[in-house]
Design a protein around this nucleic acid. Sequence first.
DNA 1: GCTTGCGTTAACAAAAATGTTAAACAAAAA
DNA 2: TTTTTGTTTAACATTTTTGTTAACGCAAGC
Lengths: 205, 205
Amino acid sequence: MKIEEAQTEQVIKQKAKELFFKKGLIKTTTQEIADAAGVNRALIHYYFRSREHMLSILLDEAMEEKRERVKSILSFDLPFREKIARYIDAIITYNMTYPYLENFIISETVRNKDRTEAYCARNQSRSSDLIRDQLAEEIQQGRLAPITPEHFLVNLIALCNYPMLAKPILRTIHGMTEEAYHEFLLERKQVIYMTIFKEEMPSVS
Amino acid sequence: MKIEEAQTEQVIKQKAKELFFKKGLIKTTTQEIADAAGVNRALIHYYFRSREHMLSILLDEAMEEKRERVKSILSFDLPFREKIARYIDAIITYNMTYPYLENFIISETVRNKDRTEAYCARNQSRSSDLIRDQLAEEIQQGRLAPITPEHFLVNLIALCNYPMLAKPILRTIHGMTEEAYHEFLLERKQVIYMTIFKEEMPSVS
DNA sequence: GCTTGCGTTAACAAAAATGTTAAACAAAAA
DNA sequence: TTTTTGTTTAACATTTTTGTTAACGCAAGC
């Protein structure tokens, strides 16, 4: 229709991201994406060559954006505990915006090791290096039990991501409504900080 | 060939479980399963009606077995911390036997909410109820910071399961070999216990 | 006005996977 | 030996999804 000049590509991307990363419909077909975007299916091939290639682009973008938002926090010049508090907040907030993104990242990295390597190669600094010194200091000052940066980070990310990854099963097991689970996820910001530091989380402005 | 009398069904199941839960090949086709089992593809339909139905059976069995092994530990008459130590050990050990089972459980429960509900309905006792009293006592005695059983369990399961779920990406990010990551997972038994209780894990016989 | 090129579409082609069936086979029962 | 029953196979059919193409339309530049 040429109404929204040169925006078709973006509309397709946007709708596809919603289907994949917000609604979690991992098996969404090119036809369904085209329908959601209100365009002919052939346009998806016109702009993105193949379904596989499109998914690759979407994932790269989404992973990049998440990393950008989340990981940069570890580079700020802030006290260790405040840094971590913000990190927790950023991950959980981001997870709630794209509830199924992490599921996708994980299935894709399982299925396609090449993408994982490409992604990590692009990634300059390791998260573990960004906290190494401050973490060591906390431990040395006796404020934290000894732990390697790798384990510390895996703990942190696990505590933040898993409840979103396993939402359907956790929600059902604990017999929570959608709203109750939403609350539960927000509570977790405090809970995670408390689990790691054994003190109340300072409020993040 | 009728060589292995009446075992065909079990052979198919076994091979399918290996492909799905050990090798993580989520997209494995009925043909590939048949090949692995050394039988004609039609037999898969003969015994299991459809691919979907077979996957459903496999998952139910696997989930049931994991629950059996892992959750029963919470019912033993043991001191709280020993119970949790064993729970951690059981989950991580089981995860290492079927490295991709948890991935499957999660993708399936995302895709098919009905199965989740059926599974949970079958499940008599909530894990959170099994630890409620002992957890409350720990907290009341000041040995643990206040936390609900739900958050406590989610913490625990997250810390145990996530590193296996996200293995490909974590391994690449941290630049570990397969063997190094194996070690890392074993170390986590101690790390998780320490993270939760801030004391060394007693050795589990 | 003509033409050039991108965006768009419908129709077609091909591939990939699942599901079905009729017949062969083998072992146990009659 | 014949029958019967459950197992197995090859061949076929269907479904589902992806990928291609030729033609159409519209706007900009000549």
